[in-house]
Design a protein around this nucleic acid. Structure first.
Lengths: 204, 204
DNA sequence: GCCCGATGTTACAGCCGTGTAAGTTGCCTC
DNA sequence: GAGGCAACTTACACGGCTGTAACATCGGGC
């Protein structure tokens, strides 16, 4: 992530807008949504409030714009990961593991954004929850497709959607552990355990 | 939950204190921590700010006291549930299922408090996270004890702590689903699925 | 090279929450 | 039934954030 250029120089509207969103994201990451104010963002960006108002109607609009941008990025990352899981290639188990691996990589690469998704803070604009819920539904749907046929004969889930949700929840919990205590829960440990878990779910 | 008596009458210090905590809990439940203010609590309680200051040093202390009280209650509820899981009685699977069942019942009985635990909102005093983390560790430890010997021969977990965490995470996700969409995810559906899941984890 | 629009600032009025000091009122006791 | 303490209110000084209007300045294009 490029540092949010606390430049004093003048900026084009586009650059300024991006910078303000960067600053907002940083502040949310550090202190949460409730700590963000137009005043604070302006101060941190090295400018004055009216400039911010020139770009965003009010605090809500600013936060929404930030969430919108980050959400879009996160969904794009997901889009790159999910197809992997549906590849007709390997076994469902390998697909799921590859998906988890990609997911953890994406989370590690942009912790602030994914922290928003994984620990959705109150005070966030409703757009966030909607976006998260949309993303999660996509994931669950994809997982359900993998799970429905069963990981092997005799292990068909009686409730594919719920199974998918639980898998998604396990993946999220893994990501959460990695985010909050990476030294104790390195990616290899999480992946190794997931591999064991999925093996258990196979018949025989 | 007794309604928080918006009485105008004078109150004993103890009753007033409890009422203020009730009001605070309500407001947090409705609008989140960030929306709570001494002013707001006083207004809702039908009194003036100095009364609140008579009981709590500042907003932080008020929120901490509320979290403290609710946390203690939640931990007490957990304490009633957890031993069940360790009962030498039935199979590990039955113990785990009974534990989940009790957990879901507790959550349904006091949604506001458990929502705090399951969806820990930013803006909450650090005490909350500490209390949650303490509670979760207790649960994970208990689950790990159940899981370590394996749910059956040949199914010993290579990483009991992580397995326990995943089980705990699945239970939490179940509770979360029940809280956010009870008609779609009634307790029976969640329990039935958990039963299937645990059966899959058994060997053979 | 100068001019005009875009970028940015200073300044003001207002709202809401904080915390405290001083005074008032109700209740319980002796 | 009068004192006295606990419960409560009124009132004030203060600080931070919100929006907006009026003014200043930079810089690219003709």
């Amino acid at each position: 992530m490029p540092s949010p250029t606390p430049t004093r120089a003048r900026m084009s509207a586009d650059r300024r807008r991006e910078q303000l969103l960067d600053v907002t994201k940083e502040m949310v990451g550090e202190q949460g949504f409730h700590a963000v104010s137009i005043e604070g963002v302006a101060r941190r960006a090295g400018i004055t409030r009216p400039v911010v108002y020139g770009h965003f109607d009010d605090l809500g609009a600013l936060l929404e714009a930030m969430v919108e941008r980050e959400g879009t990025r996160a969904l794009a990352q997901l889009a790159e990961i999910l197809p992997t899981e549906l590849a007709e290639g390997g076994s469902p188990r390998d697909d799921l593991l590859a998906g988890l691996s990609g997911y953890l990589a994406a989370v590690a690469a942009d912790p602030i954004t994914w922290r928003l998704v994984l620990m959705p803070p109150e005070g966030a604009p409703p757009v966030l929850r909607e976006q998260i819920s949309r993303g999660r539904d996509a994931v669950v749907a994809a997982l359900a497709d993998v799970v429905r046929p069963g990981l092997g004969p005799g292990s068909e889930s009686p409730d594919a959607e719920l199974t998918a949700r639980m898998l998604s929840s396990v993946a999220d919990e893994s990501a959460r552990l990695m985010l909050t205590d990476p030294s104790r829960y390195p990616r290899e440990r999480l992946l190794a355990h997931a591999a064991w878990l999925l093996r258990q779910l196979e018949p025989g």
